[in-house]
Amino acid sequence: MQPVIETHNLTKRFGTFTAVDKVSFRANPGEVLGYLGPNGAGKTTTIHMLLGMILPSAGEAQVLGYDIVKEPEAIRERVGYMSQKFALYEELTAWENLRFYAGVYGVREHAHLQNTISRVGLTGLEKTPVADLPLGWKQRLALAIAIVHRPQLLFLDEPTSGVDPTARRDFWDLIYEIVADGVTALVTTHYMDEAEYCGRVGIMSRGRLLALDAPSALKREALPGLAWDVFAEPLLPSLNALEGLPDMQRVGLAGDHLRAITGRETRKADLKRALKDVATKSVRVNRVEPTLEDVFLALADAR
């Protein structure tokens, strides 16, 4: 199977700053690949290189078999891009926006435009000015625009940021439907909730790709330790006491309890013993499933 994206040591420097540092990965046909990292981690710069919008400083990449340096036009014809600040014309209607962008790609069949509107669930809202659409519907329109020229690969930049869980679920159902037709998606996000929807997730920090695997595998293997919920009062002295443990990797406040990541050798009794002198009430300690956030923070800290 030919990979949809293949990069080798892809690097981008701006002056002395390395925005993307020797990134190598493959995206396979029909997969939803997530790219998780904080602002400034190099996610958008990577996409811009893959789209042929900026040139790499070193390394190489093929997208859909085309070289990003030599054949950027061939790539852009076949790829859809939904950027975080989707450029919709607020004063135009949903239909006018879609027709405009479709025209840029030479797509003019009325039936296809209507079909695209219906695929993203905007039927009936064609004549609504974009300014009057709620955020969730604007996101759907931006998706329609990204897929109207029938791309084989879709870049989605934080597609559901700011919407509630129901709107997010509905949007992801749309993405899964598009992917089921053989399209590949690369989704960048800094939300852990969103990363959970991806088949594989790459963790990016300060230009480096630190790990890339299925969410469940990352939780199982990429976290170099155990995750615990610790219920102890008062919270801050308990936090300080746990920080003193030799095997403690990270401990933080999590509402009414503490979240701790320890080495693999730590036992429940070790944590309880550390709290013996500070806790005023009885202490509860539970081993828990790590979250993607635990994995992310552990990998980002380790550097």
Partner: peptide
């Protein structure tokens, strides 16, 4: 719109505030 490390820092500050100074926080979030 802020990233996970910043969100984590922000929440540590909030929890510290309520634990140390016993204030009340009402926060809306999606």
């Amino acid at each position: 719109g802020v990233d996970p490390i910043t969100r984590q820092d922000f929440w540590q500050l909030l929890i510290q505030l309520v634990s140390e100074e016993a204030i009340s926080v009402l926060v809306s979030t999606p």
